[in-house]
Simulated scan of single mutants.
Amino acid sequence: MNISFFLKPKIEVSYLYSDCPVRQAMDDMMHSGFTAIPVIDRKGLYVGTITEGDFLRLVLGHSAEQLDQITVGETERRVRHHSVRIDANMEDMVDLVTAQNFVPVLDGRGMFIGIITRQDVIKYLRDHCTEERNERKQ
């Protein structure tokens, strides 16, 4: 199966720019309700994923005023979230989505084009198992 079937396009996804001040990024994350968000540069290249834990570690070591001076791109990230290219095979994507809530998807140039969520993959697998069970019953 082509992984593009699962793709939530960039236009429907929350993301942060790497040059965004940390204080603003924390506000954006809080309003989004997500615990992790992809980070891209102004050209659209995927830089990484930042988590609430990354921000917490930063806040514990800096004053509130310093958080306006530090950018998301300068923030140390504890975990490296892996991405896939749009032409990746399903097995590679499933391996990643078991360890991450979402998998960032890149085009051939490394440009961020969207995400694949763990929830969507699990729903697909559930439906696929249900279909197989129903076929065996017939």
Rank of each mutant, 00 (worst) to 15 (best):
V72G: 02
M29D: 02
K43T: 06
P38Q: 09
R109W: 08
L16P: 01
E135V: 09
G53A: 06
V72K: 02
A36Q: 13
D27Y: 12
I3G: 00
D127L: 11
S83Y: 15
I113C: 13
F34I: 11
R85E: 14
G53R: 13
F112Q: 10
D95V: 14
V22R: 03
P104F: 15
F55L: 10
H31Y: 12
P9V: 07
L58F: 06
A88T: 07
M90G: 01
N101H: 13
P21K: 06
R57W: 07
V94F: 15
E65I: 03
R133P: 00
I40H: 01
E135L: 14
T130R: 09
E76L: 14
Y17K: 07
K123C: 00
Q66R: 15
P9G: 08
F34A: 04
F55H: 10
G33H: 10
R136T: 04
E12F: 10
C20I: 08
V84L: 12
V59H: 02
T49L: 02
S83K: 14
I37D: 01
M90L: 15
D87T: 12
I50H: 02
T98H: 12
S14W: 11
E65N: 04
F6D: 04
H81N: 09
R23C: 01
Q119A: 14
A99D: 13
R23P: 00
A99R: 15
C129M: 10
S18W: 03
Q24P: 00
P9A: 07
K10W: 06
S32V: 09
C20P: 00
L60F: 07
Y15C: 03
G73C: 07
M90Y: 13
